[in-house]
Design a protein around this nucleic acid. Structure first.
Length: 573
DNA sequence: GCCGTTTTCGGCCCGACTGTTTTCAGTCG
């Protein structure tokens, strides 16, 4: 029974109780307990064993007792009883836009609706409009909500949302009523997937800004429009929420709308303890309501006696305590990155020549580029046969003469075969400047086999980096079954850095895994896995993920300047 | 359901917009 499973159960209880009509504060207690467990560093079962559950802020006798029963027996009597009254399938309905717990409760109690398909039928038959609090418009909105949920399955990849937001901001900036503008929400926190894009504008003429916004070319439909808040659906089905606020509240609003929600709840309770009230309009005196500050986001943190917290860390996962003790680290920055070490050329499955890739990397301001083509057995990716390696080395040597402030390194992304042996022998691996190893076949091995396979791979000489360590593809492929801590430990003992793969649907390691690996003193390399030059800028998303994992410059190998990097990888050869 | 340097009872974070209503509940972030 892991921590996430316990947290999930508590969240489900909260949602079901909401539908049942329980008081807000009671269901919130379950959610807060769930949140605490999600960020817990040790296994919850350990706490149960040592009777320490109630040491956690937000867990009292009632919830502790439920956790104890659930972790020791695998089920919870209270939950079974609850789902007899309120069917579990109603939880799906809560994810439909314009439906919340109250309406779902009414639908269930008055019409006996328990599933999305039953709901759709009831809507098309016009059965909802007669219920109290419902009408024809609600009926239509629910139908739209169902369609939207099916079409988008919820969230977009970070890079898609980022590209949309950049374009939208460019459009908004053209209007002189826009004084200041920023992305906010989960996009500003650079989460790997984004529910909707939040944009914040400072202006004294909100109507003009809203009009300009709704006339943006890519707006498919206006979902709601008011003087301070407008939501639209773009033609690629991503939702954009725009908030307009007076300049004197811009900083407070930026803080507020960046979230996360859990981070803000903590911040507001700190504000109250210090005699303030904090909302999106500013920091106020709790008693007199007098405005104290709000123009700059940094001032809010300062007035709460907190070190400034970068958006990437605002998940209520310990960052507030760090800020109270002035211990927020200086995170790695995109400017710190001196080169990309995982790029594919036409020598395997890349689309472009080494020359083209090198020119693009040089223009991007890098000192070096590592060209890592797939190894021989990976036929589907046009893996490089042994007898072509010499040709590649010579070509790189020739191109390198062109540059005096840039250097191409010849690497490989060598396959770890199913038994843990590598796809090139030792004498071949030695020819490369550096070596990534990675899994590209037989993803479904069990935990024991896969962990053995990877740790055995890490034992070979001349290995520098472990590519996309968990193999997950966001929304499409789950991570391998592996004992991740054992892999981190082995990599660390062998002085091998773990990749933070920046390709948008990989982001592998994830922020959570980075955090875990960092605690075990792992080293990292951030690389893009580019297959053509348009992928090189993905570095930004790898760096953001590293930031979310709390990495500093010295945690990341490819922040080293060329000479130092040569020493690092050269020491193994 | 949780919590306490005022409290073991009475608070608990807050505001905008919509749709269904004639003054506000529900949803959303």
């Amino acid at each position: 029974m892991n921590n996430q499973e316990v947290a999930d159960l508590l969240n489900k209880i909260a949602n079901l109780m909401d539908i049942q009509g329980e008081t807000f504060f009671k269901t919130r207690a379950y959610r807060m307990a769930a949140q605490q467990i999600e960020v817990l560093e040790e296994p919850i079962e350990q706490l149960v064993k040592e009777q320490r559950l109630q040491d956690i802020q937000g867990i009292g006798t009632a919830i502790a007792k439920k956790i104890e029963e659930y972790t020791t027996t695998g089920h919870l009597t209270f939950y079974n009883k609850l789902t007899k009254e309120i069917p579990e399938s109603l939880l799906d309905l809560l994810n439909i836009q314009s439906l919340g717990p109250k309406k779902v409760g009414t639908l269930f109690h008055k019409l006996g609706i328990t599933t999305i398909s039953e709901l759709r039928n009831a809507c098309t038959q016009g059965k909802l409009r007669h219920l109290e609090g419902f009408g024809e418009i609600t009926e239509r909105n629910i139908l739209r909500g169902i369609t939207l949920k099916e079409k988008t399955s919820g969230r977009s990849l970070l890079h898609n949302a980022y590209a949309d937001s950049t374009e939208c901001i460019t459009h908004l900036r053209k209007n002189p009523a826009v004084k200041k503008i920023s992305i906010a929400g989960s996009l500003r926190r650079m989460k790997e997937t984004i529910g909707d894009i939040d944009i914040l504008v400072a202006s004294n003429q909100p109507e003009k800004v809203m009009d300009h916004f709704t006339h943006y070319d890519h707006v498919e439909r206006i979902l709601l429009k008011g003087p301070t808040k407008t939501s639209v659906l773009l033609d690629d089905n991503i939702q954009v929420d725009l908030r307009v606020i007076e300049p004197k509240s811009y900083g407070a609003a930026l803080q507020y709308f960046t979230g996360s929600k859990e981070h803000n709840v903590q911040l507001r309770s700190i504000a109250i303890k210090k005699g303030y009230k904090l909302n999106e309009y500013g920091l106020f005196n709790k008693n007199t309501n007098a405005y104290i500050s709000g123009k700059h986001e940094t001032d809010i943190y300062q007035l709460l006696d907190l070190q400034y917290i970068p958006p990437e860390l605002r998940e209520n996962a310990g960052e507030i305590e760090l800020a109270q003790h002035q211990k927020i680290p200086k995170l790695v920055d995109l400017k710190d990155i001196n080169g990309d070490l995982h790029v594919h050329s036409q020598y395997s499955d890349g689309n472009e020549t080494i020359t083209t890739l090198a020119d693009a990397a040089h223009k991007q301001g890098y000192q070096y580029l590592g060209v890592t083509d797939h190894s021989q057995s990976l036929v589907i990716a046009n893996g490089l046969p042994k007898d072509k390696i010499e040709k590649k080395l010579q070509e790189i040597q020739k191109i390198n003469k062109k540059y005096d402030d840039f250097h191409i390194l010849c690497g490989t992304e060598c396959d770890i075969k199913t038994d843990g042996t590598l796809d090139y022998p030792k004498n071949i691996l030695k020819k490369f400047d550096f070596v990534y190893i990675g899994i590209h076949t037989a993803f479904k091995q069990n935990e024991k086999e896969m962990t053995h396979r990877i740790t055995k791979g890490l034992q070979h000489d001349y290995v520098d980096f472990l590519a996309h360590p968990t193999g997950r593809i966001i929304g499409r492929r789950n991570p391998f079954a592996i004992d991740f801590e054992q892999i981190i430990t082995t990599a660390q003992e062998r002085n091998i850095a773990l990749e933070i793969n920046a390709f948008p649907d990989r982001l592998d390691l994830s922020d959570k895994n980075i955090k875990l690996a960092k605690e075990l003193k792992a080293q990292f390399v951030i690389s893009t896995d580019s297959h053509n030059r348009s992928h090189l800028p993905f570095m930004q998303f790898g760096v953001a993920t590293a930031q979310r994992g709390g990495c500093t410059k010295k945690d990341i190998i490819n922040t080293q300047p060329l000479n130092q990097l040569k020493q690092t990888i050269g020491a193994k050869r």
